[in-house]
Design a binder for these strands. Structure first.
Length: 197
DNA sequence: AGCCAGGCTACCG
DNA sequence: CGGTAGCATGGC
């Protein structure tokens, strides 16, 4: 399958998606066509936390949790490590597991002292699997790594395992993080719409 | 009123 | 290895 053609078709159909959203004034701010995000460390951290919160959950619910963390000044590695955040992240579901995941990620985040994370390190953390690791690398660190999700498999009828699919798609696209970011977001948009009918 | 969301781990055979 | 229960809230 020519995934670059599929990408262009979806782009024409849905337009630029502006992922990953950043919380501003208590709502998700998308930035279509602007690939400069994230602009600082706290935005990188926010994207990473959002990637964990949205596991098997709608963005709407993850967003609620993110906003509550931010409102209560708890959207920082230290606060997440030291405070009880279960009640704040409750809307995102699985709050017991997700609190643990956020604490583990936050410790790792501090320990690496500003150095960029590696894929192997992220995958080694409890609570971070392929999709979450790759979302962090692609959207917070602009690494040209394609994020495979359930929609990707369904829309293109792909049955292989994660890594096989990822490499197959990557080898059919220009190695440009902006295209990877857009394509994954477009697939989610297409997947959400095509399910409702 | 059940099914599913921008998954992952643990455990089973 | 492949398959699946459990985790939990909120929207439709």
């Amino acid at each position: 399958m020519d995934f670059y053609e599929e990408y262009k078709k979806l782009l024409k159909k849905h337009g630029k998606q502006g992922w990953w959203p950043i919380i501003k004034n208590n709502k998700s701010q998308y930035h279509p066509g602007n690939y400069e995000y994230p602009r600082n460390e706290s935005e990188k951290f926010e994207i990473s936390i959002g990637a964990i919160l949205t596991q098997n959950t709608t963005w709407k619910n993850a967003e609620k949790a993110l906003i509550r963390l931010k409102k209560n000044k708890k959207l920082s590695p230290k606060a997440i490590i030291n405070e009880d955040i279960k009640e704040l992240i409750r809307p995102a579901g699985y709050y017991n597991q997700k609190e643990k995941k956020l604490k583990i990620f936050s410790k790792y985040y501090l320990e690496k002292k500003g150095r960029e994370p590696t894929r192997e390190e992220l995958l080694g953390l409890w609570g971070i699997g392929y999709e979450t690791a790759d979302s962090i690398l692609l959207y917070a660190y602009k690494k040209p790594i394609f994020v495979v999700d359930a929609y990707t498999k369904r829309i293109f009828s792909l049955k292989e395992d994660y890594e096989t699919i990822r490499k197959k798609i990557e080898s059919n696209l220009p190695s440009d993080y902006r295209i990877y970011q857009e394509f994954h977001a477009l697939i989610v948009e297409e997947g959400k719409k095509s399910r409702k009918k």
